[in-house]
């Protein structure tokens, strides 16, 4: 077992954003976290990365309890993430942004630069290496987030809506990139709103609603689950919609 969360609860005051959620991640998985807005998936995600402290529950990485580890310690163990709103280092070039990730495994500048260039090549951004990162648009910034995370040589990569704000063509390229990352042996957790991404990438899906896990299974199982449809559309609409394919109900294939 690579990553495991046991009974994670995250409360803000009396409000439980995540209520007793558990998950296990095996080497080679692509786990999708889905749910309506405000369902708690991002909060859960941030508990896994260490950005938020859990109120209760444990997080284990390769059998080791990392619940109290800082984000930088988790990164060192092999947990990398991207941010929903890209956290680009605006004052740096694209290459330097990636070097920050590469510095985790090599303390020398020249070595980090070589590694960073290789990562940029891999994600198809080497042409932009010396451009200032602030000149990138949303698609570039999202891809840069992934490149930076890859440069830390992670075992598990957590992508927080890495495809939000991309057009259809860009989503396709991003999906190809994620597949390529997966093939290279990296286990993935993806939080995503775009159902097509989940359907085509995830090997297992976990559905959140109001802080609780309401379903899990393969993408097809989950999207045909009445509870899931009700969570997205409301109970009455779900009954009325019976007979439609799940993917249409949940936003349909993106166009």
């Amino acid at each position: 077992m690579l990553l495991e969360a046991r009974g994670i609860t995250k409360a803000f005051g009396s409000f439980k954003a995540v209520d007793d959620a558990s998950v296990t991640l095996e080497q080679g998985d692509i786990l999708g976290l889905i749910g309506p807005n405000g369902a708690g998936k991002s909060t859960f995600f941030n508990c896994l990365t260490g950005d938020l402290k859990t109120s209760s529950g444990r997080v284990l990485f390769e059998g080791r309890d990392i619940t109290d580890f800082t984000p930088e310690l988790r990164a060192e163990l092999g947990l990398a993430r991207t941010f929903q709103v890209p956290q680009t280092f605006e004052g740096m070039t694209v290459l330097e942004n990636v070097m920050i990730g590469a510095f985790l495994r090599s303390s020398h500048r020249a070595e980090a630069e070589t590694k960073a260039r290789a990562v940029l090549e891999r994600v198809g951004m080497s042409r932009l290496a010396d451009s200032p990162a602030r000149s990138l648009g949303t698609p570039g910034r999202k891809r840069l987030e992934i490149a930076r995370a890859l440069a830390t040589e992670p075992k598990v990569l957590l992508l927080d809506e890495a495809m939000a704000g991309l057009n259809a063509h860009e989503v396709k390229r991003a999906i190809d990139l994620v597949r390529d990352i997966h093939r290279s042996g990296i286990t993935l957790v993806i939080v995503e709103h775009i159902m097509e991404v989940i359907m085509s990438l995830a090997s297992r899906v976990m559905v959140f609603h109001q802080g609780k896990e309401i379903a899990r299974g393969s993408p097809l199982e989950v999207t045909s689950n009445p509870a899931v449809i009700a969570a997205y559309l409301g109970t009455r609409a779900a009954k009325a919609a019976a007979g439609h394919t799940p993917i249409e109900l949940m936003g349909g294939p993106i166009t």
Binding site: T49, D51, T70, P71, E72, A75, E76, A80, R81, F83, Q87, T88, F89, E90, G91, M92, E96, M99, I100, G101, F103, L104, S107, H108, R109, A112, R148, A149, A151, T152
Partner: peptide, 22 residues
């Protein structure tokens, strides 16, 4: 590495930490 980390922290401490910068 220290100088790079400092500049990264200046722009986004959260992102810098997620990439392993103490």
């Amino acid at each position: 590495r220290m100088g790079f980390y400092l500049r990264a922290i200046k722009d986004s401490e959260r992102a810098a930490r997620s990439l392993g910068a103490p």
